[in-house]
Simulated assay, not measured.
Amino acid sequence: MAKPMTKSQLVTALAEKTESDKKTAGASLDALIQIITEEVSNGGAVTLPGVGKIYCRERPERMVRNPATGEQIKKEADKVVKMTIAKALKDSVNG
């Protein structure tokens, strides 16, 4: 498996694709991350066309096991961020 792309590599690639400088590309990426974070934190969802949908899902209270002791403990309800990958991206990876 290849190493994941770092933020600086992503900014460089974005600057090349948009034919802009790295500062503008970095600011655009930061703004996009901030918008997604705010929307998902407030219970909404964000669809990135061709990539997927990012959303927040609530998990109910449940019983879990401590792997070290085997003790059953109650875990409070919480929220998790999920992402559903778009079919177009899946097809391009597999095809």
Rank of each mutant, 00 (worst) to 15 (best):
S8W: 07
Q9R: 03
L10W: 01
L10G: 03
V11D: 02
V11C: 02
T12C: 01
A13T: 11
A13D: 08
A13Q: 15
A15P: 02
A15V: 08
E16I: 08
K17E: 13
K17T: 08
T18A: 06
T18G: 10
S20M: 13
D21F: 00
K22F: 07
K22H: 11
K23Y: 05
T24H: 15
A25N: 04
A25Q: 13
A25C: 10
A25P: 03
G26T: 06
A27P: 05
A27K: 08
A27C: 10
L29W: 03
D30S: 09
D30R: 03
D30Y: 07
A31M: 14
A31K: 10
L32S: 10
I33E: 09
I33A: 13
I33Q: 13
Q34L: 12
I35D: 06
I36P: 01
I36D: 00
I36R: 01
T37N: 05
T37P: 02
E38G: 07
E39I: 05
V40R: 02
V40Q: 00
V40P: 01
S41R: 07
S41W: 01
S41D: 12
G43R: 13
G44I: 10
V46A: 02
V46R: 00
T47E: 15
T47F: 07
T47A: 12
P49I: 12
P49S: 09
G50H: 06
G50P: 04
G50A: 06
G52E: 02
G52V: 06
G52C: 09
G52Y: 06
G52P: 00
K53S: 09
I54F: 08
Y55Q: 06
Y55H: 07
Y55W: 05
C56S: 15
R57V: 13
R57H: 07
E58G: 07
R59K: 05
R59A: 04
P60R: 15
E61R: 11
E61L: 13
R62H: 13
R62Q: 09
R62A: 08
R62D: 11
M63N: 13
V64D: 14
V64K: 07
V64L: 12
R65W: 00
N66Q: 12
N66W: 10
N66G: 11
N66V: 01
A68L: 10
T69H: 10
T69C: 03
E71Y: 10
Q72G: 06
Q72T: 15
Q72K: 15
I73S: 11
I73P: 12
K75C: 11
E76F: 05
E76Y: 12
K79G: 04
K79V: 03
K79N: 05
V80M: 07
V80C: 04
V81H: 04
K82R: 12
K82W: 01
M83E: 05
M83G: 04
